[in-house]
């Protein structure tokens, strides 16, 4: 039986608008003009226990709206949601007791309290028995290496440390499900790896079902067996990473720093996307030419100071997917 069932979920927002300038402000006093935004436009999916699903899409696509509805803090306009036999927004208190939520943009710890005191407070709020709490807490502290800053107030933590603490906090009451909204946003490479390893561990070892929204393609590649892509409030694609790749043509970027300004690069298998000072960005298809080949060809022809390969930003992949779907 699925753990999460979402059927035809819709969320419509009415946004008040006014014309710019003084006249617009005055007019706004008398007549309010509203624009209707369909943040979620008929979403359907189910999740089985133990799945690790990536939920991706451009800004404003409806990712956070979905997570908020699933977390029980936003009431949808219409549609059905069933999580562990409950309707999140109707039975909020019991529902949130069984889930963990992390919003990368915002901590849920107490800003002025030392980390360990936040953990103790959560124990009382979720009414976790002392023994169970101690065991879970110590394991989380160990897995996330939190020991050295347990006595530091949350406001003095670095973003990476804070995120690790937030992850631990979301799991102290041993929830069956975890909602992660951009947990790696703004983190440095090492912290990102630590967070990813931890999420994987929790999912594989403890069987926690995870929904992860992110803009980081590497998160998706490292973690998710299944990827749902949302755009303009609709699910555009739902399947494995390979399914997604098959839908969008594979593309990589090569960024080259040349020794002199104003030089140009020409290559039969790569297309220049951007030119800025001595920096040139090329687009290439790794199935036509592999990255090492392209790099050695360019390095031999041009005075290269530095170069690196990157994935196109997720927004572009999604935007491309979206254009292709239309």
């Amino acid at each position: 039986m699925p753990q999460v069932t979402v059927e035809n979920l819709r969320k419509t927002f009415k946004i008040a608008e006014r014309d710019p300038g003084m006249w617009g402000a005055v007019k706004g006093l008398a007549v309010r003009r509203y624009r209707t935004v369909h943040a979620l436009d008929g979403i359907d999916f189910t999740l089985e226990p133990g799945e690790l699903v990536g939920y991706i899409g451009p800004n404003g696509a409806g990712k956070s709206t979905t997570v908020k509805v699933l977390a029980g803090i936003l009431v949808p306009t219409s549609g059905k949601v069933d999580i562990l036999g409950r309707v999140p927004w109707k039975d909020r208190i019991e529902h949130v007791r069984g889930i963990g939520v992390v919003f990368g943009q915002r901590t849920q710890l107490w800003w002025d309290l030392p980390v360990i005191e936040s953990f103790d407070l959560l124990k009382d709020i979720y009414n976790v028995p002392s023994d169970a709490h101690r065991a879970t807490r110590d394991r989380l502290i160990d897995l996330l290496s939190l020991k050295e800053f347990l006595d530091t107030p949350v406001r003095q933590l670095s973003l990476g440390q804070r995120m690790r603490c937030d992850l631990a906090a979301s799991l102290l009451h041993s929830p069956a499900m975890l909602f992660l909204d951009e947990p790696t946003i703004g983190l440095d490479a090492i912290s990102k790896l630590a967070v990813r390893d931890f999420i994987k561990e929790m999912n594989r070892r403890n069987g926690v079902t995870v929904i992860l929204t992110t803009h980081d393609m590497d998160d998706i590649e490292a973690l998710c067996d299944r990827i749902m892509v949302i755009g303009s409030g609709k699910i555009l694609s739902d399947g494995t990473l390979e399914d997604l790749r098959a839908k969008v043509k594979r593309e990589r970027r090569l960024v080259v720093h040349l020794a002199h300004d104003g030089m140009d690069i020409e290559d039969p298998d790569a297309e220049v996307v951007k030119r800025e000072g001595n920096q040139v960005q090329l687009r290439f298809d790794p199935e036509v030419i592999s990255a090492p080949n392209l790099i050695s060809r360019i390095a031999s022809k041009y005075p290269v100071r530095d170069l690196f390969v990157e994935n196109p930003p997720i927004e572009e992949v999604i935007a491309k997917l979206y254009r292709e779907m239309e």
């Binding site: 803090i73 208190i93 949130v96 915002r106 709020i125």
Partner: peptide, 21 residues
């Protein structure tokens, strides 16, 4: 002041993530 800033930054809803009234 904390409730004031939660309201101003529209983050009051996150208070509802805790299983309390």
């Amino acid at each position: 002041p904390e409730i004031r800033s939660m309201v101003r930054t529209r983050t009051v809803a996150y208070e509802l993530l805790k299983p309390v009234d």
